[in-house]
Amino acid sequence: MTELLKSLRTWPWHIVAPVLLFVAVAVLAPWLTPYDPAAQDYMSILQGPSWAHWLGTDYLGRDLLSRIIGGARVSLTAMSIVLLAALILGVVVGSLAGYIGGRFEVVMISAIDIFLALPSLVIALALIGIMGPGYWSMIVALTLAWWANYARMSRAVVVAELRQPYIEAARIMGANHLHIFSRHILPSVLALVVVYASADAGALVLAIATLSFLGLGVEPPTPEWGQMLVDGMGYLEDNPALVILPGLALTLVVVSFNLLGEAFALSKVPRPARGLTLSRRRRDRAKEEAARAQVEARP
């Protein structure tokens, strides 16, 4: 983690800035929106840009600018919840599998492999189908669709760390499992997994928008870009901006996150991971990542 902070000075700010802008807009949304994003106004339906409504209004007279800004907040919130939950679940399951070992590890690895074998969106859709559509089903489904990769990485780091002499030294000095894990292993796990998780943010924003577009995610009247887009599809001839602007906002955010993820992945390539035995695997992954431009962009 400290390594990450130290590299702050060398960060490519032209890549970080768009992401920060998105986060700032999302956080400050309640103060930035000129109108309540859900407020309907039947006197001004499907209007073009004006001084009252800078970007115009939709078919219920809702202010488009307010809805786009509000949509940023909804996207960021949902994405952060899923990312955090998937991260915790993945790190806990992966670390336990690696630390406990034995039959438990074998079972957990099989579970992880099955989850990784299917496209995340298919897993998420199957789970939503079972739980029924809705905001929290989407959150749970995406978490379960996303945790496996973090679990796999966590397990690999734990297994590699357990072979280190300082673990043995700690054990000889009488440190208990909790101490060994939290002081010596967890920091290495987090250092790797957090970086990869940040690279997944773009794909997650996209997945949330896709599910909402399909009517299986964020529900109206909450403003969400994917759902605004599908709403606007019915009014293409009246006001194509209803479709184009949310789509552009979404694309820009995904591009920004993907560029950030790519920068992270590439900056991780040459640095040998403090003698971790997994470095070859990590290098292979990074290479693979660079090759497909990290923009796996799960549709």
Partner: peptide, 11 residues
């Protein structure tokens, strides 16, 4: 190709 890979297919 960067933009194409990041644009949602519904957009």
């Amino acid at each position: 190709s960067l933009v194409g890979a990041s644009t949602p297919n519904f957009f």
